[in-house]
Design a protein around this nucleic acid. Structure first.
Lengths: 356, 356
DNA sequence: CAGTCTGTGTAGATTGATCTACACCCAAAC
DNA sequence: GTTTGGGTGTAGATCAATCTACACAGACTG
């Protein structure tokens, strides 16, 4: 039920008066500090209860901790990020810390403002997800407040990182597609992927793995990288163009599930089926398992990553100074959106289909 | 780029010293208050710039405003809520206010803790989405801080509300299904729907509209209400049970898209197709438009609702005292998951199908 | 020339909690 | 009977802003 909501009206002073003790005594009780007799503790607790007292986070923030950790998230529309949040929330639920989320306003550059907003609010720690914020900027930030970065592969001694092994995940996808017999495999990546591998962005790692896998398979001349924003409609439009080309690829590997869904949409738009063009994604969003979609993809274990990030942050807050970099192993999930390519030149036929 | 991140290290005192003025003067400049000469303003602005000063939200919160508004959201996994967030973020982006999000920990009751966490952080206003928090509690809260409730239909003089016309939306769905010829229509609803219409929860309104529509169509004896948690796996399980019954419904109307997707999944699991069992949802999540899904549903215009809520909140913060209750008109979106029912007794056949 | 006004800037109280330093009391030790 | 000392509790400074009240200057008025 929760008691009456009280918005700062009741202060520690009121509690002290009610219990007939000093402010300091009340403070000790709520902080579980040393030097409180059971009797006083009881009296104070009762007064707190009776008045519905809640400590002001602002006042606490003036001297030290706010018991708040912040997570910065780009594109909440992408269902992968809520997984991270769920994991982080779970990891924090036993602790005295609350999670607040700052959405990166897509209008403004890559989460700087969102992270800054968290810092302004004196959070005790920051989890950041935007892959392109400047490492030097992050290091300067990490001098003041514990930082855990999710997803990015650069290693800094100043902040921790939780990453998925994107190299491995992308290679699993490529091996799968190559094993099926595909040779014309295109890769769809957002701008962040094109930023270059030294950015450490997961998309950049996946792109590099795609390139390497193609080279190693002797398909260097068939490498085809297409840039596209991450949204479903955008990637659908881009994919439509790709599919209209004379030598359209037999498979498309998208760097995320969102654009992969857009590609699947485009495949249907173009009057084709997964038998004509295979599609693979990355993230294993919930809907990918739906029979109407059945998207082959890579499970990054987002909840685990979110949980791990929160745990690392708590350790940092508790005082750890040595950096930690944790890698989560991704897992290929094969579904029906990837199939062997049609024999060259074969025209698409309408086939009798049961259920997928 | 954003300048170096500074975590409270630089204070207003430092700026004042740097500019050779008093703290009060600096305060005036950053608040755009009366009584600053252009010359002083320039000096102070320069000093702020040079030192990378950022006002401490905590200290500000000690006396008055934090320039932060909070939104409480249940189940971030449901893609409808990010729509609300996008709208609210957009509406706020011109203002000096930042949005922070408090996810309702599903372990604990209906968002009380999340809302309380926002209030503890002295937000200047609260947007709340959980439909089941106690109205009296909310009114007590609204005495202290502006509140806008999204989705719930009870009218309070203390707080504003943005609702979708759920009665109308649900009736549109029912009219559509009845027009198609369905008579055995089941309704899937979460616990909140069963809480009773007086709760004002959107699910409860939809449930009531379903009941009424059935009654008015002379199908009172075929009313079938099934309770199910909102998650996709849960509703899939529940729906499997429903479909296994001897007199299974020819159509299922789910109170949200999430469970509707679960029902569609179950339909496929049971070896059936939309031609056997029609499914309609509510929310128009992005994936509903995907050809592999093609779910008939109701567009609630989530972005518009989020935007409206943020606008109302800003008005409240600016001083409006009279309550406002805004209704957004929903829109039926017909897709292929709803079809005319098979003639009674006809067994499901395997049919040759092109693309949907 | 005294009095008033206006524009500009400052001093200092205030906000709610934390935390160090210290005072007090009663018991055990010498 | 003084000393030591652990256990409890309090006073008061502190954190970074805001904001009221006021001081002081120069210009204008009667």
């Amino acid at each position: 039920m929760a008691s009456r909501p009280s918005a700062g009206s009741v202060t520690i002073e009121d509690v002290a008066r009610e219990a007939g003790v000093s402010r300091a005594a009340v403070s000790k009780v709520i902080r579980n500090a040393y030097g409180v007799s059971p009797a006083m503790k009881a009296r104070v607790t009762e007064a707190i209860e009776k008045l519905g007292y809640r400590p002001s986070v602002s006042a606490r923030g003036m001297r030290g901790k706010t018991f708040t950790v912040g997570i910065e998230i780009p594109e909440l529309s992408n269902p992968f990020f809520p997984k991270l949040l769920a994991g982080a929330t779970a990891a924090l639920s036993g602790s005295p810390y609350r999670l607040i989320i700052a959405p990166a306003d897509p209008e403004h550059g890559e989460g700087y403002r969102a992270i800054q907003a968290l810092v302004d609010r004196q959070v005790d720690g920051v989890i950041a997800v935007s892959p392109l914020v400047d490492p030097e900027w992050l290091e300067a930030l990490a001098d003041h407040v514990p930082v855990v970065m999710i997803g990015r592969h650069d290693r800094s001694p100043k902040y921790d990182a939780v990453v998925s092994d994107d190299e491995d995940g992308a290679r699993q996808v490529m091996r799968h597609l190559l094993d099926l017999g595909h040779r014309d495999i295109a890769h769809l990546t957002p701008a962040a992927g094109l930023a270059g591998i030294e950015s450490g962005a997961p998309q950049a790692i996946r792109l590099a793995a795609y390139r390497d896998a193609m080279q190693e398979a002797g398909l260097g001349d068939r490498i085809r990288v297409v840039g596209s924003p991450n949204g479903q409609p955008e990637s659908r439009r881009v994919a439509l163009g790709l599919l209209a080309e004379a030598d359209r690829p037999t498979a498309v590997f998208a760097s995320h599930d969102e654009p992969a869904l857009g590609v699947m949409h485009a495949v249907a738009d173009a009057g084709l089926t997964p038998a004509d063009v295979s599609v693979a994604g990355y993230d294993d969003v919930e809907i990918a398992a739906h029979p109407g979609i059945s998207l082959t993809t890579v499970d990054q274990h987002g909840e685990r990553m979110g949980r791990l990030a929160a745990e690392l942050l708590l350790e940092r807050i508790a005082g750890r100074a040595e950096p930690r970099h944790e890698t989560v192993r991704p897992e290929l999930v094969v579904r029906t959106s990837t199939r062997p390519p049609r024999p060259r030149g074969g025209a698409p036929r309408l086939r009798a289909v049961g259920r997928t």
